[in-house]
């Protein structure tokens, strides 16, 4: 990696101040995406702002009819949280299937959602549950937050602080892993609850997206067979050495069905 300055602020305000002062700075939480990129010299930040010293960014709590998870909460903590398991078991299930033990022990929800890797798991759950993203300056609905591959509504001096998940009646997640990277090749997160009926697809396209035809079908009849008649268009989906867009389009239907079965 290239040399960089290192900061470890103790408050969100200090972190924002550092970020605003240096347009070439990068925020790091778990580091599981950023550090490999640095080691490969694919990224050359002037400074890293390490959020791990900010206590306000940690923890999982139930607030009213929502579960609020701090940005620095690690995947393993979500996977094993009794609060999450009781309120949104699909979210705990999803977190328990991200990467491997090392990734789950280091990676954080805030890092994953801010990065918005199209093949990541968390954006599927955040959009699939209609969550609200809390930042250092505002609250952003998930529907407005994800803006395509590695792009979000976050501004340059804005830090994701927490995610607020409304508790659904039911929700489920299913994914097909890329055989090599084990990232998501095609995944579906479905839910029914205060945010309506949602079918969200991750992995298959250049960014996480709502499958509105499947949502309509599922709203009409919540059953695994409901989406069978909805054909995902391959146009615009990812295509690479691991699978064509047509294959991914097919997997979208399979994973949606499985997610509905998982949701019950």
């Amino acid at each position: 990696m290239y040399d960089f300055a290192y900061h470890k602020p103790a408050s969100i305000a200090d972190a924002v101040k550092l970020l605003a002062a240096d347009p070439e700075a990068k925020v790091v939480s778990g580091g599981h995406t950023l550090l490999p990129a640095l080691k490969h010299r694919l990224n050359k930040p002037t400074s890293l702002i390490d959020l791990s010293g900010i206590a306000d960014l940690k923890g999982i709590k139930k607030v009213g009819n929502s579960i609020v998870i701090g940005a620095l909460t690690r995947h393993v903590e979500v996977a094993t949280s009794e609060i999450v398991a009781a309120a949104i078991p699909a979210l705990a299930y999803m977190a328990s299937h991200i990467g491997d033990n090392q990734v789950r022990n280091r990676g954080t929800i805030g890092g994953s959602v801010s990065n918005n890797d199209p093949a990541a798991d968390y954006p599927g759950a955040v959009l699939g549950l209609g969550a609200t993203v809390h930042t250092s300056k505002r609250k952003i609905a998930a529907d407005d937050f994800f803006q395509g591959m590695f792009t979000t509504a976050l501004e340059a001096d804005e830090i994701l602080t927490a995610i607020e998940f409304p508790i659904p009646e039911k929700a489920g997640y299913a994914k097909m892993k890329n055989p090599a990277s084990r990232y998501v090749m095609a995944g579906a997160f479905v839910s029914k609850g205060p945010m309506g009926v949602r079918v969200v697809i991750n992995g298959a396209g250049p960014g996480v997206f709502r499958q509105s035809a499947m949502e309509a079908a599922l709203a009409a009849s919540w059953a695994p067979g409901a989406v069978a008649g909805v054909k995902q268009d391959a146009d615009g989906l990812n295509s690479d050495i691991h699978g064509s867009a047509e294959y991914r389009a097919h997997l979208v239907g399979v994973m949606a069905k499985r997610a509905i079965i998982a949701a019950g």
Partner: peptide, 23 residues
């Protein structure tokens, strides 16, 4: 079942990391 070394038509190694080469 898993391993495929892939070069593209320009001779760039596409399966050049564990992200794309299935060990």
């Amino acid at each position: 079942l898993l391993e495929a070394c892939v070069y593209d038509a320009q001779g760039q190694l596409i399966s050049g990391s564990m992200m794309d080469y299935t060990m």
